[in-house]
């Protein structure tokens, strides 16, 4: 995923902004890492460039 995508993403549960953590990148994009919601205390995983922003109860 591109960095610009983070600007339009929020937590799907509380709609607060997300903070990028532990990002690993190639030349163009973020390949893996986490998008952290401080309010919900939840990390949304980025894997193979695709961020998983399903609410936590849908990931179980």
């Amino acid at each position: 995923m591109k960095d610009s995508l983070i600007e339009i993403l929020v937590c799907p549960v509380c709609h607060e902004p997300l903070e990028l953590k532990d990002a690993r990148r190639d030349e163009k994009e973020i390949i893996s890492g986490f998008l952290r919601c401080e309010k919900c205390n939840h990390d949304y995983q980025i894997a193979d460039g695709i961020p998983n922003l399903l609410p936590p109860d849908m990931n179980n």
Binding site: M1, K2, S4, L5, I8, L9, V10, C11, P12, V13, H15, L18, Y44, D48, G49, I50, P51, N52, L53, L54, P55, M58
Partner: peptide, 29 residues
């Protein structure tokens, strides 16, 4: 995963981003 691979081949340089999300709780303001 298929969408991402197809977009790299077919989107003619346009900016397409894919996210794993549910329509009932979208992660956008």
């Amino acid at each position: 995963e298929i969408a991402t691979a197809k977009a790299k081949m077919l989107s003619q340089g346009q900016n397409i981003r894919f996210i794993h999300a549910d329509v009932g709780r979208l992660p956008f303001p």
